[in-house]
Design a protein around this nucleic acid. Structure first.
Lengths: 243, 243
DNA sequence: CAGTGGTCTAGACCACGCG
DNA sequence: GCGTGGTCTAGACCACTGT
């Protein structure tokens, strides 16, 4: 026996995945839907919350509920060392970078293996596909390693922005840690996603051959459209994994 | 300006992370908490829902709300090819394996690059730490490759259960795809987690040198306590990533 | 049985977007 | 101003857990 909330969520989900409700389309207002399903607005809203957490529905205050526009999937390609790891920037991605001088504290000291107060440069990178934010990266580099040119160059090349390690002299060892969590308040609003939609968080730490950490990158990708792929070898190739 | 829901969630979160509410401890009943905070039970429940999605609170119907017992973290070690990738089984993990003969269909045909109806063996592996389920893996192997011994061996070694590829003759190429999503109904109940707690889903495809896929593993790890780590080199070593 | 969480209601009032 | 979603209430009733 399913609760009405789940019945309604299932019904709407089916209508969306079957294409009877199309991406970008506005759903009837919550009051109307509540009347159609003969439930209270609270119940109807809890059904929509399910779909929202699944990334199928976008709620916009004052405007309505919309079938999620299925954006291009984001594929983070790891298993680096030969090429700079990066989000596959197939096309038409716009990147903004904000550079800030900060001092290490908290987790950053552990990640970069520097002491508290150590000078760092933070690169806050935001990628957009058209007008929708797609991914967020915070990259930290010890101040003495950040090439001076980059510090003064507001719009750098797309490729370089994704990772700086490749520009540095010595070959790099990379460790990437991937986890699933809810976005912080800031991340949710920056990426314009629901704070109930889990993100794929990737922490990428790059060291030179001496073991010195030369870069730490914290990437946040919306869970509904992101995968991270790690390959030994390019021999295996085909479609998407399950689900 | 924060909603009362978030105020309450923040307050309880602080009390938990500060240790004033201890792991395993039962919270006051929802009615009592609602009275303390002077809100309706609905509002209080929505505050608890926030903490539940963060994995900080376990709700048990008929018993109460409990501060989440912080279990050992699960670290999935990828970047394989030299050693079988596996969940670090530091100690005291019990594994159950259920073996089923099935036929390929849907996503599995694409993953294993076999045609629909092709005979497979499914290994459904569940790891427990004490009595709590910790991770779930579904491993698929073409029937003609599954060693006959394993099919009849109900309790295999812990190491072998995590990945079979290492037992096979030819060296392997591995592709691992990581994503964040909500658990299915089955996964949530099997892992005894909230269906609002995101999971880290890892799809691991192993091929032999000829390019033939010899194994596909679908791993599901609770997002609140799992990381996947991919390293080029073991030169970098220290604590946890951010957050 | 009593106590707990789970679901749902009918309605009030607030905040946002747009004409 | 009007229609939308966002928050909250006070309470009813159901379902599960333990005694």
């Amino acid at each position: 026996m399913l609760s009405r909330r789940h019945c309604i969520a299932n019904d709407l989900r089916d209508r969306i995945t079957a294409g009877r409700l199309k991406p970008g389309e506005r759903l009837p207002s919550e009051a109307q839907l509540a009347a159609q399903y003969e439930v209270s607005t609270a119940t109807l809203r809890s059904a929509l919350a399910v779909l929202q957490a699944e990334g199928l529905v976008d709620k916009i205050h004052g405007k309505g509920n919309f079938v999620h526009r299925s954006l291009r999937r984001i594929t983070y390609v790891g298993g680096s060392g030969t090429r700079p790891p990066q989000i596959a920037a197939d096309a038409a991605l716009r990147i903004t970078v904000r550079t800030t001088k900060i001092r290490a504290r908290g987790h950053l000291t552990a990640l970069l293996q520097v002491s508290t107060g150590s000078p760092l440069t933070e690169f806050l990178c935001l990628k957009y596909e058209a007008k929708s934010p797609h991914s967020l990266a915070r990259i930290y580099v010890p101040r003495d390693l950040a090439p001076a040119a980059m510090l003064n160059e507001p719009s750098m090349s797309h490729e370089a922005a994704a990772s700086f390690a490749v520009l540095l002299p010595t070959p790099a060892n990379v460790r990437e840690t991937v986890s699933a969590r809810l976005p912080t308040r800031d991340e949710a609003s920056t990426l314009q996603i629901s704070s109930a939609l889990a993100v794929l968080a990737i922490t990428q730490v790059t060291a030179d051959i001496t073991g010195r950490v030369i870069e730490a990158a914290l990437l946040v990708l919306p869970g509904d459209r992101a995968d991270a792929v790690f390959t030994n070898n390019h021999a295996i190739d085909e479609g998407r994994p399950e689900r």
